[in-house]
Design a protein around this nucleic acid. Structure first.
Lengths: 151, 151, 151, 151
DNA sequence: TTTT
DNA sequence: TTTT
């Protein structure tokens, strides 16, 4: 392959609080769904139409998994970069299924919180835990190692 | 929605010649699969690993559908931008299935051919039709209207 | 040229209200500066460092120039895509100078407002004019033509 | 800053072989100019117009600086991601000048070679050194640390 | 000049 | 399931 690029850029809002799970090896994996929305005027009717797209995001990168666990909550707006990956799995009936996810792993991906909320007004609006209320609410980072992350 | 972004950027190679179909309304739809590839050294074994990801791309934009039909062929390397869309369909057994595609439509998307081949050396390498051999082999365009496309 | 890509993606805040000017031909041109910021821990001292980068953005696209004029104000957070262009000019001393700008023109570019403010709480925070207070505060659009813009 | 993004994506060709220099601290810095090109039909005359844009790229990331030094040559086509940075300097007359560059540093950036050339046909076309002729000609990497780079 |  |  003469060089390839597989990149997704999303700005959207979390549909729910993220799910956190640990691998047997002790690595943290955080996943959530992110909504993006398009609105347009229908050509025929002139009516305003809207379509919401739901994206499944999975973070394998240890550091960004930590950040996601601490700062991401239902409703929060986020900018992220990841790559597309389609995973095969078998359903209860033994049928092959495919699920496409946006992956942030140790190689690639970024996560930036966009709608920082000052302490006072956060008001549990996003179910923010203690950490978020105390920490700087805006975070930005890429998939690099600890000492190379600008925050 | 306080502003959202849904963007995919891919550089890869077509797995097959594109498929062209027409809607009842006479619009052209072109679809193809695009391969991207990652290679890395496994942390444990140190072995070189490779993973190819296949992306399903669908072009609803009339102009870019034309370009894709004329210039894209199996193996050809392309840069493209589109947006993610997951479509629900029902399989033969009546089961709901989901397929995620990269959409280039009248609103958004770009297509740029990267591996232009001068006439002499094309040699049918990509099954290029007459048009491609005669036309300028590198094309770039976005999803805008006819007179706004830079080519 | 075998296909090329020239794309800038920025999320930042306007340093001032945008400037609007008209060409002799009656086209509207809107320009502003956008701040992006990086923070990181210095490797040697461990101190937290910050650097703000200022980007000069110029919108030649009629539709997005209108949107920018109506909705963008000092402090507002925006996502945008454009392309890089370096312009030569001559200073008062007759010396050649170069300025690099992020261009949104009739061919390419996008503009999405990220920090929509409901009427009630906008509070003149961004000097929002009457239009903004009345209109839907979140806007998203690309450089396409009128009837192809999703808003 | 409530989260910001400063990203440039370019696909273009090197204008010259890259320049390599070392800092006093022993870090390698590689810089080059990259051409991107737009062609369009003029609205008034209908004539085909072309404009080439030159981008100044500077790589501070050790690993990618190595890759650039070894594999990049005049004419080579590359995909890269970096961030915009405007640097102030003083010319011989004591006047302040500004230069905008695309930076790939230890925090952010990617570099992917697009026009891989098999050994046989490279033919010194890009002044490829011994390494390039022997090594896998397609390379892709991001700004992460050694053991996290997929190649 | 923004923002946190 | 988000958001406006």
């Amino acid at each position: 392959m003469a060089g390839s690029v597989n990149k997704v850029i999303l700005v959207g809002n979390l549909g729910k609080d993220p799910e956190v799970r640990m691998t047997q090896g002790g690595a943290k994996i955080v996943s959530f769904t992110l909504a993006t929305s398009d609105t347009w005027n229908d050509r025929a009717s002139g009516e305003r139409r809207e379509r919401t797209e739901w994206h499944r995001v999975v973070i394998f990168n240890d550091r960004l998994a930590d950040v996601a666990e601490r700062f991401l909550r239902k409703g929060r707006q986020v900018y992220l970069e990841g790559s597309l990956q389609t995973r095969k799995w078998t359903d209860q009936g033994g049928q092959e299924r495919f699920t496409t996810e946006v992956i942030i792993d140790r190689f690639r991906g970024e996560l930036t919180l966009l709608d920082s909320r000052p302490d006072g007004e956060a008001g549990g609006q996003y179910g923010a835990p203690a950490e978020r209320r105390q920490a700087a609410p805006a975070y930005s980072g890429n998939a690099g190692p600890d000492d190379e992350i600008p925050f």
